[in-house]
Design a protein around this nucleic acid. Structure first.
Lengths: 235, 235
DNA sequence: ACGATTTTGTTCTCGCGTTCACAAACTCTT
DNA sequence: AAGAGTTTGTGAACGCGAGAACAAAATCGT
């Protein structure tokens, strides 16, 4: 039917620069990495794009296209070598090197983040915990003790810290953010429910717990057909 | 139910628009809500789409289009009444009613979530904390005490719980998820680094802390020009 | 060795979301 | 009251990403 006839565009070939990985693809690479690790743990040595796609929860065509941005790591007729691909993705993301992370704001959330094992297992090393509350400074959390925010500059410089995590209240977030940037941190993960402005060269990502719940609530409301107020169910 | 003061003679609501709100728009409504609250706190009574857009960190055209899906709440030549719009968005999301939430897995993260004030302030009430570790059952966290996972069914039914938060290790996530679904929970927020499968009628959202860091690391690596990627092995 | 089979890498098409641009609608000034 | 000035709501163009489909490349069987 719609067989590609003789319409061969004589356009100049677009170079597949390794630089231009789509943002949507970048966001999925860690998911693939996790899926590959799971397969490897089960002693699976080779996996097809379909296997991987199922394991990662995506479409197999999408997965193949994503991987094609990184290079040609599969073997036609066979699939992907799990450990090899896993290493390639890890290298692409930058997980073959360690990253130093500072966490600012050691309240409940900062506490949890400091103890989160998922960071350390992936090459992220929490090198310092900072808080502006002097009463908290000196406290121990896991292996670390809480430092004063005033030590930020030295900690960042001496520890080659490039990633900062903000877990402060919203009111303090922008100030902390500015100080992180001034100290030389160029990637920030923000858990505070606030809009932060940063210079162009700084990357910032936001995780907002209450927004996620609100999105769920929206759909939940639709499902229950609750147009007005609370309806008292049966009983 | 107290109305937020009928303003300008109540017009008929545009109900056809309520059907198909794009997902991308839904995800921004909480952001607008927060921006409106911030303006309201500063005693701003009226705001143009441009004002709001700046406050929310988006493009003003996008904001206007988003709001247009909800109805016609602005006044041409004037802007939006801050409190009125805030109420409308809150109603649309479903925040004019309270939502009962259970948190499963009271480790570091679950602990932090249980104490997170951002939930309560937006109509989300944490009604129960559950853990499968019997040694933890009975412990107090804030106002609540930790219940056994076996009590899930009764808690969900008696408390009209529709939202569940999973903060367990990855290995336990699917089991906990299945039990939540079986108990009648139809919206799930998953913090465990695992892919969960749920029936169609259940909504699920995922928050993955380490993925966010990995995305930052990817861009950070590009910025520092570490093209070679391979440096001294970590041994 | 050669065809059948499997699976990748890529091209093409479609749909969604973002942004521009402008008519409609409201207020303010004279 | 009418024109000037604002600002909303929306139609239209554009770009990106998702998914289907297929040619190329590898293995396997005879």
């Amino acid at each position: 039917m719609t067989n590609a006839g003789g319409r061969k565009g004589g356009r100049a070939r677009v170079e597949r620069a390794e630089r231009g990985i789509p943002e949507a693809t970048v966001a999925r690479l860690p998911v693939y990495l996790r899926a590959l690790t799971a397969l490897s743990d089960r002693d699976v040595t080779t996996a097809s794009s379909e296997d991987l796609a199922v394991s990662a929860g995506v479409n197999s065509a999408k997965l193949r296209k994503d991987l094609s941005y990184l290079g040609t790591y599969g073997t036609r007729g066979v699939g992907y070598d799990v450990d090899y691909l896993r290493y390639q993705i890890a290298r692409e993301i930058g997980l073959t090197q360690d990253w130093s992370v500072v966490i600012v704001g050691i309240g409940n959330l900062g506490h949890a983040l400091a103890n989160y094992s998922g960071f350390a297992s992936r090459g992220f090393r929490v090198t310092a915990l900072l808080d502006s509350d002097e009463a908290r400074v000196g406290e121990s959390v896991g292996d670390l003790h809480i430092s004063s925010l005033d030590d930020l500059d030295e900690i960042v410089r001496s520890g080659s810290v490039s990633i900062g995590v903000i877990a402060t209240p919203a009111a303090a977030a922008q100030i902390v953010c500015d100080r992180l940037v001034a100290a030389g941190v160029s990637s920030i993960l923000n858990f505070a429910p606030a809009l932060l402005s940063v210079p162009d060269h700084v990357d910032i990502r936001k995780v907002d717990l209450s927004i996620e719940l609100q999105i769920l609530a929206f759909h939940e409301q639709r499902k229950t057909g609750a147009l007005t107020g609370i309806k008292a169910g049966t009983g």
